[in-house]
Design a protein around this nucleic acid. Structure first.
Lengths: 339, 339
DNA sequence: CTGAAAGCGCTAACAG
DNA sequence: CTGTTAGCGCTTTCAG
């Protein structure tokens, strides 16, 4: 079944196809009568504008590409939710690409986006990509680009992130104020800025409160429940003195919490625990898990809004790149408050 | 900065643009030497094929549209994760649209997809859309369509769903086998097939085991933690005798669980609880929450694979529509096993 | 193995 | 207010 085009409508009405085109685009210089007639036949013939043709001609697609490591995490799916919502309200559509933290996938995704002539790219870069030339190349070519959550600081590209340093600092300081002194830290072994910053916040908080940082209390590995368990096991096995755990991610914190309880250690009375991300389960576990909220949906919305604002301005890379930094929110729950 | 086109490459090499086009598409009738030369200059000039132009001409976009209620739920984001992964491996890109369960949004989404000339639409329909003409219209126009999770049975459209009836039955039967007799049911007030089927499974399981179905034990409302709490409060206030709760969704089950514990009722000893969805928190709460797993990622993968298979066949709607029904998996945990 | 030519469906500048 | 015209960058026949 052939798709109907503006030519079909034009033939029906005995006008030229450009009149039809104008009518459909609500061009001012078209009589109300013609407009009505065109709209009517368009509906009757089930006309659907061909965006490929219009984009090819006009040079704008109203499509933006989003790159995330994976949608199978509540963090990124929430952010994408926020982005899509706002972009959709502003007439944009979303092309989605998951990289699985693989550089070659990220490369492929960006390439497809360029080929699809997206109007912009919103990306949360993977660890590998942070060091590569991938994005600096795009930046040089003036492709409208915006980072969210995971940005490459060295590039003059606008971004929306949260203050991970402050998050790490707040979590650690909270534990200190609750009376904990020997605070272990569990984090990722990926070399990602977000984790490095949380770690830096942890160190500075300890330092500012006159506490020392001990290598024996730092654990790195693949972010997962097991890492939390293994870390606590290690601490116990080595008989390292510790009275709290600040984990840079909630699942890992959950693993630590489980292992502590399993070993008969009372939380928060003997050991305090704070995570990071505010996953749904934190509110429901016993004891409920203190954590840092990352304002995921808001991050998505801000990302979209900043992009739209920059698109509206003279040129996307006009002035110094705007970097929106959201405040992390400490969510104190039972696991860190012995009272 | 102008984008480079096949004409630019052709000029460099003193061949015609159609030779370049062939070389780039790895056409057999092009000499290896020319191909190499073309590829080299393409890379040097940063050539990016314009998919708009190629799709406009060829009639294929290699893009599919996905419609979901919201990505801000672990269920749909996992399914989309699975779909994207498989489709991506097969050279397709994903346009994403969230409806927020609103019919007008769904309409808009489908329209945009048609205008974007997607090669197919994968949709999880909202409650309102189930009754409307929206999809039957698409089906009539032979648009390649596939439902996942939420299908419209009346339409001859392929689908990938789970057996919600069986899930409801299994959950209820599990409770019965654990010795529970007066099982309350909490479900959605949306008229969605998935919830109706779970309810039907619940009824049939009770019936098949010689237990009666009581209106006083059925609660409907907006799916959320609060619904679970309110339902249990109601049961307690009205002094309705009950010894188990099967909730058609995990958050609601969690609310019920919390309210029970708050009222000093022991779970699973006095009252058993089973949810539905296998949300992440279920494994971590105390007592851990029994539930029904929906194989989300697998559902996404199967959806993508079925779509690809149908695209590969003569015509998409050739024979009777294939309907893949995945088995729900009972995940028995502490909340329903008093031993 | 390569070239010439037509056209996918639309936008937009120019002309009346 | 409407028509004419020229492409956007590519795929795809038909010739050579």
């Amino acid at each position: 079944m052939k798709k109907t085009t503006i030519h079909d409508i034009a033939r029906e009405l005995d006008v030229t196809f450009s009149t039809v085109a104008r009518a459909l685009n609500d061009h001012p210089a078209i009589s109300a009568a013609t407009k009505a007639a065109v709209l009517e036949t368009a509906k009757r013939l089930n006309y659907q504008q061909n965006k490929l043709a219009s984009s090819l001609r006009s040079g704008r697609t109203n499509v933006i590409g989003i790159i995330v490591p994976s949608l199978d995490t509540s963090f990124f799916s929430s952010v994408v939710h926020g982005i899509e919502k706002v972009m959709n309200e502003n007439g944009y559509n979303i092309l989605l690409y998951q990289t699985g933290e693989s550089l070659s996938q990220e490369q492929k995704g960006l390439e497809t986006f360029l080929q699809s002539r997206v109007d912009g790219i919103l990306s949360s870069v993977s660890a590998e990509a942070e060091g590569s030339e991938l994005y600096s190349e795009l930046r040089k070519r003036q492709v409208p680009l915006l980072f969210f959550d995971r940005a490459i600081k060295e590039l003059a590209v606008p971004s929306v992130t949260i203050n991970d340093y402050q998050g790490g600092y707040a979590a650690t300081e909270h534990l200190i104020k609750q009376g904990y002194q020997r605070i272990a830290h569990i984090t990722s072994d990926q070399n990602l800025t977000i984790f490095n910053e949380r770690y830096r916040g942890y160190r500075d908080a300890l330092h500012d409160h006159g506490l020392s940082v001990s290598k024996k209390l730092i654990f790195k590995g693949k972010i997962a429940l097991e890492l939390g368990k293994a870390s606590v096991q290690q601490l116990l096995k080595d008989k390292v003195a510790f009275d709290a755990v600040f984990s840079a991610e909630d699942y890992t914190a959950m693993g630590a919490l489980q292992q502590l309880l399993e070993a008969g250690i009372r939380v928060p009375e003997q050991v305090g625990v704070v995570g990071f991300a505010n996953e749904a389960f934190g509110a429901f576990v016993t004891p409920s898990l203190s954590t840092i909220d990352q304002q995921t949906v808001r991050m998505g919305e801000e990302t979209a809004r900043l992009f739209l604002k920059l698109c509206g301005s003279k040129d996307f890379y006009g002035s110094a790149p705007e970097r929106i930094v959201l405040d992390p929110i400490l969510v104190p729950r039972k696991s860190s408050q012995p009272q």
